[in-house]
Write a protein that binds this DNA or RNA. Structure first.
Lengths: 136, 136
DNA sequence: TCCCATACTGACACCGGGTGTCGATAAGGT
DNA sequence: ACCTTATCGACACCCGGTGTCAGTATGGGA
């Protein structure tokens, strides 16, 4: 989580497919499903299998290289994010995503959990709304 | 959302199956999947189909009677909650759930979103940890 | 109390996201 | 160049959830 953000996960082979996925993630700014990413790569002429996309995204997420979000339909979506702890403000129409920070929220979550006797506290905060561009 | 919490959704017929699901939800205190609930009802001798459980829970959720949570595996889980706006503090081991309120968080989310030009703001906040009983 | 329109039920087929398998392929150290 | 082995990807499969539709049961009306 503190390394310099390599395109592939360290200790693994660098393949054309992984490079392609890494490059695409660098260009995209919003959360995309595995199928979205597969489709986009095919459109760009990359020969790549859907299974490979699924597994590579999963591996990147496990390594903390990318963030995962579950859509309300239960589908996983991925996005390359900054290394610092943050949350997401997402447009429900165009999926435009803004990273936001909220130290006060972190502290609140920690305090509330401790008050109830909980430990090893983790939390998720997502804000969804309609962005200015999508309201016209 | 302001009515007195009927066991079934208003305007619909009251059936044995819906009553059974409503009763069970009243007794449970943590989030359960549709299959959990179906299994528990069968164990108690209720003749009820899995499809009916899925649809009834979905209807109750749509009516705002119960809260829905997506597990990290993408599975939906349900729980009867209080009418007031709240968030959940859940034990990752035993799933024990505590309802918590955080007006400061609501305001923060609203403020952050408005600052970025977003409107019709909604948000999700979940806190997960290990409860005192599950740490021994 | 009986009747009946119709909401509800639930077995089953089906859908779709995602994973296990395994022979073929290719990375990269020697 | 060679060989070990990680990776790829077509395919079968898993599983949570939904559509279908014939059969059932509710509850308002006569």
């Amino acid at each position: 989580m503190t390394e310099s953000r390599p395109t592939v996960v360290p200790g693994q082979r660098s393949t054309r497919q992984r490079a392609a996925i890494g490059d695409l993630l660098d260009q995209l700014d919003d959360f995309r499903s595995a199928q979205d990413i597969h489709e986009e790569l095919r459109r760009r002429g990359e020969g790549i299998g859907l299974t490979t996309v699924y597994r590579t995204l999963q591996a990147l997420a496990d390594a903390g290289e990318i963030d995962v979000l579950r859509t309300s339909a239960g589908e996983a979506s991925y996005r390359r994010c900054s290394d610092t702890h943050h949350h997401h403000l997402v447009c429900r129409v165009c999926r435009r995503t803004v990273e936001v920070e909220g130290p006060a929220v972190e502290h609140w979550a920690e305090k509330v959990a401790v008050e109830h006797g909980f430990a090893q506290i983790d939390h998720t905060v997502e804000i969804i709304g309609t962005c200015s561009g999508c309201r016209s």
